[in-house]
Design a protein around this nucleic acid. Structure first.
Lengths: 248, 248
DNA sequence: CGTTGCGTTGAATAAGGTCAAATAGAGTGG
DNA sequence: CCACTCTATTTGACCTTATTCAACGCAACG
């Protein structure tokens, strides 16, 4: 593709690659950085990687090389139990940062699998630490992203620990809806990238339960669902499901 | 208490306060720092705070001022749902770092409550960021601690999402046992600082279930439990409970 | 055009939740 | 020191929810 005659063939590609030109920069690692810092981050994030649907971005146990910012596509991360049980710990989309679980031991503690063809930006971790020593705004934003992951996890605990099946699924759909909206997509209509089984794993339910509850939501006019396509038709009712629980 | 006649009454107190002299330094924020860095951290961690049993260290919604390292005592953190439901997100003991959930929005996202009289070291967050720009080892260790919290959360998700009541409780007891051991206490005999209800909230179960499962464990000779006192009498069996699940 | 994976639905079952009652401590004030 | 109160805990009986097991439908794909 690159013309050897062109003295700077790489730059042409990088113009599109670079964080400062990325449409996700307000969601992603460079969010809130001034232009000087942004220029530095452009150099930090120097490689892209394509992960085909079903392929792994990293495996549990693998050494930490880099963090990954999702540019396009959709991934899941899953924790494994010795006996083979697998728990989906999260679904990740554009702008999300993955791999922070690996900083603790320098080895990834979960698998990252692409649910559709996905493109990620590689962020060499050692370099990120170095650069964030020089750029307080980058440092702070990185801390905020790790903290946000912790807060997200607390939310999942709340969901798994104290919600019923219907509430969990409502919360799940609303969360997806909100995240799509934040990325400029429709908040009311979207395609699920994951199977019922993966939703079930994430929500601590069996796939049959997911299927049943989706059907019930549809009967009740909250959503309309066909295969992977979901349309939220009664947002308020869906919200009411999780806000005011029937119990207590 | 302090004598005004003494020119340096504070230093006498600080000698005991200081991280470099703290028996928890291998578990806590200064873990793995060289002595120069440790001296800096001594200045960073400049205040202690006592939290009486039942009192809050911080409230959800409160502004982030500092992170807190537990020096002695026992705390819980809990996430609140709008409708009043409360989910215990974790139990924390000496050497644990609390408050990292607040970095994301500069406001705490959960409550921190002392389950017994607790002493914490206050770590002003802005100063921690500043210092970690100067001390790569501190920076890296802080990142590891945030990451460890993420990994811990993944473990809780696995527990809540795919384990049965008996497995959850076995995992919980083993986790406590291991953490006590790491702090130089008995791994086989300890006092629970939390109520059955709090255990239940953490594990996504009702207090009656906790009580029943504890009784069953006792009948089966895995543990002996009386009120808050627990003695693990068959560690292997307890481990086997979570390792090889009956299902699948 | 069969195969395969994913999803739906029904019936039976089991796990945990709910409700209720009894008990036991721990702490309090006389 | 004792009676009293309050809260935490245990245990039983019953009920609800989600799981399990099973059958079937559907769509994509070679």
């Amino acid at each position: 593709m690159a013309s050897p005659a062109n003295p700077k063939p790489v730059d042409v590609t990088r113009l599109k690659t670079v964080c400062s030109a990325c449409s996700l920069r307000e969601l992603c690692l460079p969010a809130g950085l001034d232009s000087a810092a942004l220029a530095e981050v452009d150099r930090l994030v120097n490689r892209r990687r394509h992960v085909k649907r079903g392929d792994y971005l990293y495996h549990a146990g693998g050494a930490l090389q880099a963090l990954y910012a999702i540019r396009s596509g959709f991934m899941k991360s899953c924790v494994l139990h010795e006996d083979g049980r697998e728990q989906v710990a999260g679904f990740h989309m554009m702008g999300d940062l993955m791999g922070m679980d690996a900083i603790s031991t320098a080895r990834h503690m979960c698998d990252a699998v692409a649910l559709e063809d996905t493109e990620v930006c590689e962020i060499p971790f050692a370099y990120l630490e170095q650069l964030s020593r020089e750029l307080p705004s980058l440092q702070h934003h990185f801390h905020r992203m790790m903290s946000r992951e912790i807060v997200r996890d607390y939310g999942v605990m709340l969901l798994l620990g104290s919600m019923k099946a219907e509430e969990r699924l409502a919360a799940f759909l609303l969360n997806l809806s909100q995240r799509f909206a934040a990325r400029g997509y429709s908040s009311s209509e979207f395609n699920l990238r994951m199977t019922r089984e993966e939703i079930g794993s994430y929500l601590g339910l069996k796939l049959e339960t997911i299927s049943r509850v989706l059907s019930r939501f549809q009967e009740d006019g909250l959503i309309s669902v066909r295969h992977k396509h979901v349309k939220i038709t009664d947002l308020a009712a869906l919200r009411a499901l999780i806000g005011r629980a029937p119990c207590q």
